[in-house]
Design a protein around this nucleic acid. Structure first.
Lengths: 190, 190
DNA sequence: CTAGGATATGGAGAGCTTCTCCACTTAGCA
DNA sequence: TGCTAAGTGGAGAAGCTCTCCATATCCTAG
Protein backbone atom coordinates (compact mmCIF):
# COMPACT_ATOMS: atom_id res chain seq x y z
CA UNK A 1 0.00 0.00 0.00
CA UNK A 2 1.20 3.43 -0.89
CA UNK A 3 1.40 6.08 1.74
CA UNK A 4 -1.18 8.82 1.39
CA UNK A 5 1.31 11.62 0.91
CA UNK A 6 3.17 9.61 -1.70
CA UNK A 7 -0.01 9.12 -3.67
CA UNK A 8 -0.74 12.82 -3.47
CA UNK A 9 2.68 13.69 -4.80
CA UNK A 10 2.40 11.19 -7.58
CA UNK A 11 -0.79 12.80 -8.73
CA UNK A 12 0.61 16.28 -8.50
CA UNK A 13 3.51 15.19 -10.68
CA UNK A 14 1.27 13.72 -13.34
CA UNK A 15 -0.88 16.83 -13.37
CA UNK A 16 2.12 19.10 -13.74
CA UNK A 17 3.61 16.91 -16.42
CA UNK A 18 0.41 17.16 -18.41
CA UNK A 19 0.50 20.92 -18.20
CA UNK A 20 4.15 21.31 -18.95
CA UNK A 21 4.13 18.95 -21.91
CA UNK A 22 1.07 20.64 -23.29
CA UNK A 23 2.72 24.02 -23.02
CA UNK A 24 6.23 23.29 -24.08
CA UNK A 25 5.99 20.20 -26.18
CA UNK A 26 7.87 16.99 -25.79
CA UNK A 27 11.19 18.66 -25.16
CA UNK A 28 10.12 20.07 -21.82
CA UNK A 29 12.45 19.38 -18.93
CA UNK A 30 11.53 17.00 -16.17
CA UNK A 31 13.14 19.44 -13.82
CA UNK A 32 10.39 21.87 -14.57
CA UNK A 33 7.74 19.26 -14.06
CA UNK A 34 9.12 18.55 -10.62
CA UNK A 35 9.40 22.19 -9.80
CA UNK A 36 5.87 22.98 -10.83
CA UNK A 37 4.61 20.03 -8.87
CA UNK A 38 6.46 21.40 -5.87
CA UNK A 39 8.52 18.28 -5.34
CA UNK A 40 12.22 17.56 -5.56
CA UNK A 41 13.80 15.88 -8.52
CA UNK A 42 14.40 12.80 -6.43
CA UNK A 43 10.71 12.39 -5.80
CA UNK A 44 9.92 12.58 -9.45
CA UNK A 45 12.45 9.91 -10.31
CA UNK A 46 11.31 7.72 -7.45
CA UNK A 47 7.81 7.63 -8.88
CA UNK A 48 8.78 7.49 -12.51
CA UNK A 49 12.22 5.97 -12.95
CA UNK A 50 12.03 6.28 -16.70
CA UNK A 51 10.58 9.30 -18.38
CA UNK A 52 8.59 6.78 -20.34
CA UNK A 53 6.76 5.72 -17.23
CA UNK A 54 5.58 9.26 -16.81
CA UNK A 55 4.51 9.41 -20.42
CA UNK A 56 2.49 6.25 -20.08
CA UNK A 57 0.68 7.67 -17.12
CA UNK A 58 -0.26 10.70 -19.13
CA UNK A 59 -1.33 8.78 -22.17
CA UNK A 60 -3.36 6.17 -20.36
CA UNK A 61 -6.51 8.25 -20.09
CA UNK A 62 -6.42 9.13 -23.74
CA UNK A 63 -6.05 5.52 -24.66
CA UNK A 64 -9.11 4.71 -22.64
CA UNK A 65 -11.02 7.49 -24.33
CA UNK A 66 -9.91 6.25 -27.71
CA UNK A 67 -11.09 2.76 -26.96
CA UNK A 68 -14.40 4.03 -25.66
CA UNK A 69 -14.86 5.94 -28.87
CA UNK A 70 -14.07 2.75 -30.73
CA UNK A 71 -16.79 0.91 -28.85
CA UNK A 72 -19.30 3.59 -29.68
CA UNK A 73 -18.40 3.38 -33.33
CA UNK A 74 -19.02 -0.34 -33.33
CA UNK A 75 -22.71 0.40 -33.89
CA UNK A 76 -22.17 2.86 -36.68
CA UNK A 77 -24.29 2.04 -39.74
CA UNK A 78 -21.30 2.18 -42.07
CA UNK A 79 -18.51 -0.04 -40.77
CA UNK A 80 -16.03 1.39 -43.24
CA UNK A 81 -16.75 4.91 -42.17
CA UNK A 82 -16.60 3.89 -38.53
CA UNK A 83 -13.10 2.51 -38.96
CA UNK A 84 -12.02 5.56 -40.85
CA UNK A 85 -13.45 7.91 -38.25
CA UNK A 86 -11.71 6.04 -35.54
CA UNK A 87 -8.37 6.11 -37.32
CA UNK A 88 -8.81 9.82 -37.61
CA UNK A 89 -9.35 10.01 -33.87
CA UNK A 90 -6.16 8.04 -33.36
CA UNK A 91 -4.26 10.44 -35.57
CA UNK A 92 -5.69 13.44 -33.78
CA UNK A 93 -4.81 11.97 -30.44
CA UNK A 94 -1.28 11.40 -31.69
CA UNK A 95 -1.06 15.02 -32.73
CA UNK A 96 -2.40 16.32 -29.46
CA UNK A 97 0.14 14.29 -27.53
CA UNK A 98 2.89 15.90 -29.54
CA UNK A 99 6.15 14.02 -29.44
CA UNK A 100 4.84 11.46 -27.06
CA UNK A 101 3.57 9.27 -29.84
CA UNK A 102 7.05 8.39 -30.85
CA UNK A 103 7.40 6.55 -27.61
CA UNK A 104 3.91 5.24 -27.75
CA UNK A 105 4.49 3.73 -31.14
CA UNK A 106 7.84 2.21 -30.59
CA UNK A 107 6.18 0.26 -27.81
CA UNK A 108 9.59 0.19 -26.29
CA UNK A 109 8.60 -0.31 -22.68
CA UNK A 110 6.59 -3.13 -21.21
CA UNK A 111 4.52 -0.47 -19.49
CA UNK A 112 3.21 0.51 -22.87
CA UNK A 113 2.35 -3.00 -23.90
CA UNK A 114 -1.00 -2.81 -22.16
CA UNK A 115 -1.92 0.41 -23.94
CA UNK A 116 -0.79 -1.02 -27.22
CA UNK A 117 -2.82 -4.19 -26.80
CA UNK A 118 -5.87 -2.24 -25.81
CA UNK A 119 -5.76 -0.07 -28.89
CA UNK A 120 -4.95 -2.92 -31.20
CA UNK A 121 -7.91 -4.91 -29.94
CA UNK A 122 -10.23 -1.98 -30.53
CA UNK A 123 -8.88 -1.47 -34.00
CA UNK A 124 -9.17 -5.15 -34.78
CA UNK A 125 -12.84 -5.15 -33.88
CA UNK A 126 -13.56 -2.22 -36.15
CA UNK A 127 -11.52 -3.64 -38.98
CA UNK A 128 -13.20 -7.00 -38.63
CA UNK A 129 -16.59 -5.43 -39.01
CA UNK A 130 -15.48 -3.22 -41.89
CA UNK A 131 -13.87 -6.06 -43.73
CA UNK A 132 -14.70 -9.58 -42.60
CA UNK A 133 -11.59 -11.69 -43.04
CA UNK A 134 -13.50 -14.41 -44.86
CA UNK A 135 -14.47 -12.05 -47.66
CA UNK A 136 -13.43 -13.70 -50.87
CA UNK A 137 -10.98 -11.35 -52.51
CA UNK A 138 -11.87 -10.36 -56.03
CA UNK A 139 -8.93 -10.88 -58.33
CA UNK A 140 -6.27 -8.27 -57.83
CA UNK A 141 -7.79 -7.24 -54.54
CA UNK A 142 -5.22 -6.76 -51.84
CA UNK A 143 -5.48 -8.80 -48.70
CA UNK A 144 -6.71 -7.40 -45.43
CA UNK A 145 -4.20 -5.02 -43.94
CA UNK A 146 -2.74 -5.68 -40.54
CA UNK A 147 -4.36 -3.74 -37.77
CA UNK A 148 -0.94 -2.69 -36.59
CA UNK A 149 -0.17 -1.22 -39.95
CA UNK A 150 -3.30 0.87 -39.93
CA UNK A 151 -2.51 2.13 -36.46
CA UNK A 152 1.07 2.79 -37.35
CA UNK A 153 -0.03 4.77 -40.35
CA UNK A 154 -2.52 6.73 -38.28
CA UNK A 155 0.19 7.54 -35.79
CA UNK A 156 2.59 8.48 -38.53
CA UNK A 157 -0.01 10.84 -39.93
CA UNK A 158 -0.52 12.29 -36.49
CA UNK A 159 3.20 12.78 -36.25
CA UNK A 160 3.26 14.57 -39.57
CA UNK A 161 0.45 16.84 -38.46
CA UNK A 162 2.39 17.61 -35.35
CA UNK A 163 5.30 18.78 -37.47
CA UNK A 164 3.15 21.20 -39.42
CA UNK A 165 1.06 22.95 -36.86
CA UNK A 166 -1.22 25.40 -38.50
CA UNK A 167 -2.24 23.09 -41.29
CA UNK A 168 -5.54 22.06 -39.79
CA UNK A 169 -6.70 19.89 -42.62
CA UNK A 170 -3.50 17.95 -43.11
CA UNK A 171 -4.73 14.93 -41.21
CA UNK A 172 -7.83 14.72 -43.34
CA UNK A 173 -5.97 15.12 -46.57
CA UNK A 174 -3.42 12.49 -45.70
CA UNK A 175 -6.02 10.13 -44.40
CA UNK A 176 -7.89 10.55 -47.66
CA UNK A 177 -4.89 9.09 -49.44
CA UNK A 178 -5.15 5.93 -47.39
CA UNK A 179 -7.21 3.13 -48.78
CA UNK A 180 -8.24 0.25 -46.65
CA UNK A 181 -8.53 -2.69 -49.01
CA UNK A 182 -12.03 -4.06 -49.01
CA UNK A 183 -13.71 -0.89 -47.86
CA UNK A 184 -14.97 1.99 -49.89
CA UNK A 185 -12.57 4.82 -50.59
CA UNK A 186 -12.66 7.83 -48.34
CA UNK A 187 -14.72 10.75 -49.55
CA UNK A 188 -12.57 13.73 -50.50
CA UNK A 189 -12.24 15.96 -47.46
CA UNK A 190 -15.13 18.41 -47.70
CA UNK B 1 36.68 33.21 -50.02
CA UNK B 2 37.19 30.80 -47.22
CA UNK B 3 40.57 30.12 -45.79
CA UNK B 4 41.96 26.72 -46.68
CA UNK B 5 42.21 25.48 -43.12
CA UNK B 6 38.66 26.62 -42.43
CA UNK B 7 37.38 24.63 -45.35
CA UNK B 8 39.28 21.59 -44.19
CA UNK B 9 37.77 21.82 -40.74
CA UNK B 10 34.31 22.30 -42.13
CA UNK B 11 34.65 19.11 -44.09
CA UNK B 12 36.01 17.19 -41.15
CA UNK B 13 33.02 18.30 -39.12
CA UNK B 14 30.51 17.19 -41.70
CA UNK B 15 32.23 13.84 -42.05
CA UNK B 16 32.23 13.28 -38.31
CA UNK B 17 28.64 14.37 -38.03
CA UNK B 18 27.64 11.85 -40.62
CA UNK B 19 29.36 9.08 -38.70
CA UNK B 20 28.11 10.08 -35.31
CA UNK B 21 24.51 10.51 -36.40
CA UNK B 22 24.62 7.19 -38.20
CA UNK B 23 25.92 5.47 -35.10
CA UNK B 24 23.96 7.13 -32.37
CA UNK B 25 20.88 8.41 -34.03
CA UNK B 26 19.53 11.89 -34.02
CA UNK B 27 20.08 12.37 -30.29
CA UNK B 28 23.84 12.37 -30.64
CA UNK B 29 25.63 15.27 -29.04
CA UNK B 30 27.30 17.95 -31.09
CA UNK B 31 30.04 17.87 -28.55
CA UNK B 32 30.95 14.45 -29.74
CA UNK B 33 30.84 15.51 -33.33
CA UNK B 34 33.31 18.27 -32.57
CA UNK B 35 35.52 15.97 -30.57
CA UNK B 36 35.64 13.32 -33.23
CA UNK B 37 36.41 15.92 -35.83
CA UNK B 38 39.26 17.08 -33.62
CA UNK B 39 38.01 20.64 -33.39
CA UNK B 40 36.78 22.75 -30.54
CA UNK B 41 33.13 23.38 -29.88
CA UNK B 42 33.56 26.96 -30.93
CA UNK B 43 34.71 25.92 -34.37
CA UNK B 44 31.71 23.72 -34.83
CA UNK B 45 29.31 26.51 -33.93
CA UNK B 46 31.17 28.99 -36.05
CA UNK B 47 30.59 26.86 -39.12
CA UNK B 48 27.11 25.70 -38.23
CA UNK B 49 25.41 28.20 -35.96
CA UNK B 50 22.25 26.13 -35.83
CA UNK B 51 22.34 22.39 -35.58
CA UNK B 52 19.94 22.50 -38.47
CA UNK B 53 22.61 23.97 -40.68
CA UNK B 54 24.70 20.93 -39.99
CA UNK B 55 21.79 18.67 -40.76
CA UNK B 56 21.18 20.38 -44.05
CA UNK B 57 24.76 19.85 -45.04
CA UNK B 58 24.43 16.16 -44.34
CA UNK B 59 21.14 15.79 -46.10
CA UNK B 60 22.04 17.76 -49.19
CA UNK B 61 23.75 14.93 -50.99
CA UNK B 62 20.87 12.60 -50.35
CA UNK B 63 18.45 15.13 -51.68
CA UNK B 64 20.47 15.40 -54.84
CA UNK B 65 20.53 11.63 -55.17
CA UNK B 66 16.80 11.49 -54.65
CA UNK B 67 16.21 14.06 -57.34
CA UNK B 68 18.53 12.27 -59.72
CA UNK B 69 16.58 9.10 -59.13
CA UNK B 70 13.43 11.06 -59.86
CA UNK B 71 14.82 12.21 -63.18
CA UNK B 72 15.71 8.65 -64.11
CA UNK B 73 12.20 7.53 -63.31
CA UNK B 74 10.75 10.15 -65.59
CA UNK B 75 11.26 7.75 -68.49
CA UNK B 76 9.72 4.78 -66.78
CA UNK B 77 7.07 3.09 -68.94
CA UNK B 78 4.50 3.18 -66.16
CA UNK B 79 4.20 6.68 -64.76
CA UNK B 80 2.15 5.49 -61.81
CA UNK B 81 4.71 2.93 -60.84
CA UNK B 82 7.46 5.47 -61.31
CA UNK B 83 5.84 7.83 -58.84
CA UNK B 84 5.26 5.05 -56.40
CA UNK B 85 8.82 3.82 -56.68
CA UNK B 86 10.10 7.28 -56.09
CA UNK B 87 7.92 7.82 -53.04
CA UNK B 88 9.34 4.61 -51.69
CA UNK B 89 12.82 5.96 -52.22
CA UNK B 90 11.85 9.08 -50.34
CA UNK B 91 10.54 7.01 -47.45
CA UNK B 92 13.67 4.90 -47.38
CA UNK B 93 15.82 7.97 -47.39
CA UNK B 94 13.80 9.35 -44.49
CA UNK B 95 14.39 6.16 -42.56
CA UNK B 96 18.08 6.09 -43.24
CA UNK B 97 18.44 9.65 -42.04
CA UNK B 98 16.84 8.65 -38.78
CA UNK B 99 15.44 11.56 -36.81
CA UNK B 100 16.75 14.07 -39.25
CA UNK B 101 13.62 13.92 -41.33
CA UNK B 102 11.66 15.63 -38.64
CA UNK B 103 13.67 18.72 -39.31
CA UNK B 104 13.67 18.16 -43.01
CA UNK B 105 9.92 17.99 -43.08
CA UNK B 106 9.14 20.87 -40.85
CA UNK B 107 11.10 22.94 -43.29
CA UNK B 108 11.69 25.20 -40.37
CA UNK B 109 14.83 26.87 -41.59
CA UNK B 110 15.37 28.87 -44.72
CA UNK B 111 18.42 26.74 -45.34
CA UNK B 112 16.12 23.82 -45.93
CA UNK B 113 13.87 25.67 -48.28
CA UNK B 114 16.13 24.91 -51.21
CA UNK B 115 16.09 21.18 -50.45
CA UNK B 116 12.39 21.25 -50.01
CA UNK B 117 11.79 23.05 -53.28
CA UNK B 118 14.08 20.70 -55.12
CA UNK B 119 12.27 17.63 -53.89
CA UNK B 120 8.86 19.11 -54.43
CA UNK B 121 9.69 19.98 -58.00
CA UNK B 122 10.86 16.46 -58.69
CA UNK B 123 7.73 15.03 -57.14
CA UNK B 124 5.54 17.39 -59.07
CA UNK B 125 7.04 16.26 -62.35
CA UNK B 126 6.41 12.62 -61.56
CA UNK B 127 2.91 13.28 -60.32
CA UNK B 128 2.11 15.35 -63.35
CA UNK B 129 3.08 12.50 -65.63
CA UNK B 130 1.26 9.93 -63.52
CA UNK B 131 -1.89 11.97 -63.35
CA UNK B 132 -2.23 14.87 -65.73
CA UNK B 133 -4.09 17.64 -63.95
CA UNK B 134 -6.50 18.12 -66.84
CA UNK B 135 -7.83 14.58 -66.52
CA UNK B 136 -11.58 14.81 -66.22
CA UNK B 137 -12.48 13.25 -62.92
CA UNK B 138 -15.02 10.46 -63.13
CA UNK B 139 -17.83 11.01 -60.67
CA UNK B 140 -16.74 10.31 -57.14
CA UNK B 141 -13.12 10.43 -58.16
CA UNK B 142 -11.03 12.41 -55.75
CA UNK B 143 -9.05 15.34 -57.06
CA UNK B 144 -5.32 15.26 -57.57
CA UNK B 145 -3.45 15.15 -54.31
CA UNK B 146 -1.00 17.86 -53.43
CA UNK B 147 2.58 16.95 -54.05
CA UNK B 148 3.42 18.14 -50.57
CA UNK B 149 0.93 15.76 -49.10
CA UNK B 150 2.43 12.82 -50.91
CA UNK B 151 5.88 13.79 -49.75
CA UNK B 152 4.69 14.37 -46.24
CA UNK B 153 3.09 10.98 -46.19
CA UNK B 154 6.22 9.36 -47.57
CA UNK B 155 8.25 11.03 -44.87
CA UNK B 156 5.78 10.04 -42.20
CA UNK B 157 6.03 6.46 -43.37
CA UNK B 158 9.79 6.72 -43.25
CA UNK B 159 9.51 8.03 -39.74
CA UNK B 160 7.31 5.12 -38.76
CA UNK B 161 9.80 2.69 -40.21
CA UNK B 162 12.51 4.36 -38.25
CA UNK B 163 10.57 3.72 -35.05
CA UNK B 164 10.29 0.02 -35.77
CA UNK B 165 13.69 -1.06 -36.89
CA UNK B 166 13.71 -4.70 -37.72
CA UNK B 167 10.46 -4.63 -39.61
CA UNK B 168 11.97 -4.52 -43.06
CA UNK B 169 8.78 -4.64 -45.00
CA UNK B 170 6.91 -2.00 -43.05
CA UNK B 171 7.54 0.70 -45.61
CA UNK B 172 6.16 -1.45 -48.39
CA UNK B 173 3.11 -2.47 -46.43
CA UNK B 174 2.27 1.06 -45.42
CA UNK B 175 2.91 2.40 -48.88
CA UNK B 176 0.56 -0.25 -50.22
CA UNK B 177 -2.20 1.35 -48.17
CA UNK B 178 -1.68 4.63 -49.93
CA UNK B 179 -3.71 5.31 -53.03
CA UNK B 180 -2.85 8.11 -55.35
CA UNK B 181 -6.13 9.17 -56.88
CA UNK B 182 -6.04 8.77 -60.61
CA UNK B 183 -3.37 6.11 -60.67
CA UNK B 184 -3.69 2.41 -60.38
CA UNK B 185 -3.57 0.91 -56.90
CA UNK B 186 -0.29 -0.41 -55.67
CA UNK B 187 0.25 -4.11 -56.09
CA UNK B 188 0.28 -5.94 -52.77
CA UNK B 189 3.87 -6.16 -51.58
CA UNK B 190 5.12 -9.49 -52.93
C1' DC C 1 60.99 35.83 -48.12
C1' DT C 2 58.89 38.11 -44.64
C1' DA C 3 55.72 41.04 -41.91
C1' DG C 4 51.15 42.35 -40.87
C1' DG C 5 46.35 42.16 -40.74
C1' DA C 6 42.46 39.52 -41.49
C1' DT C 7 40.63 35.09 -40.33
C1' DA C 8 39.92 31.08 -37.77
C1' DT C 9 40.70 28.39 -33.67
C1' DG C 10 39.86 25.85 -29.10
C1' DG C 11 38.69 25.30 -24.73
C1' DA C 12 37.19 27.53 -20.38
C1' DG C 13 32.91 28.75 -18.53
C1' DA C 14 27.80 29.92 -17.92
C1' DG C 15 23.64 27.93 -17.59
C1' DC C 16 21.02 24.38 -18.84
C1' DT C 17 19.80 19.30 -18.55
C1' DT C 18 19.14 14.29 -16.48
C1' DC C 19 19.58 11.31 -12.82
C1' DT C 20 21.67 9.54 -8.02
C1' DC C 21 22.24 9.51 -3.33
C1' DC C 22 21.32 9.80 1.45
C1' DA C 23 20.48 12.60 5.78
C1' DC C 24 16.33 13.99 7.07
C1' DT C 25 11.12 14.23 7.68
C1' DT C 26 6.66 12.22 8.28
C1' DA C 27 2.60 9.04 8.15
C1' DG C 28 0.31 5.74 10.40
C1' DC C 29 0.37 1.63 13.39
C1' DA C 30 0.53 -0.38 18.15
C1' DT D 1 2.35 8.95 22.21
C1' DG D 2 6.35 6.72 20.15
C1' DC D 3 8.80 4.03 16.62
C1' DT D 4 9.87 2.58 12.17
C1' DA D 5 9.36 1.95 7.51
C1' DA D 6 8.32 4.83 3.71
C1' DG D 7 8.95 8.92 1.50
C1' DT D 8 11.28 13.33 0.60
C1' DG D 9 14.18 17.15 -1.39
C1' DG D 10 17.95 19.22 -2.93
C1' DA D 11 23.04 19.10 -3.39
C1' DG D 12 26.03 17.18 -6.65
C1' DA D 13 28.08 14.49 -10.60
C1' DA D 14 28.27 14.25 -15.32
C1' DG D 15 27.04 15.82 -19.66
C1' DC D 16 24.78 18.99 -22.91
C1' DT D 17 24.44 23.46 -25.79
C1' DC D 18 26.28 27.60 -26.92
C1' DT D 19 29.41 32.04 -26.17
C1' DC D 20 33.50 34.49 -25.84
C1' DC D 21 38.05 36.05 -26.72
C1' DA D 22 43.19 35.48 -26.20
C1' DT D 23 45.78 32.97 -29.17
C1' DA D 24 47.44 30.76 -33.40
C1' DT D 25 47.32 30.37 -38.32
C1' DC D 26 46.95 31.64 -43.10
C1' DC D 27 48.04 34.39 -47.02
C1' DT D 28 48.92 38.48 -49.38
C1' DA D 29 51.40 42.84 -50.45
C1' DG D 30 55.72 44.64 -50.40
Amino acid sequence: MMRADARRNRERIVASAREVFAEQGPGASLNQVAQRAGVGAGTLYRHFPTSQDLLVEIIKDDVDALCARGRELADHPSPGEALRTWLRAVAVHATAMRGLVAVEMAGAGPALAACHDQITATGAALLHRARPPETASPAGQAGAPRVDDLLTLANAIGWAAEQSPGDERLIDRLLALVTIPGTRKAPPPE
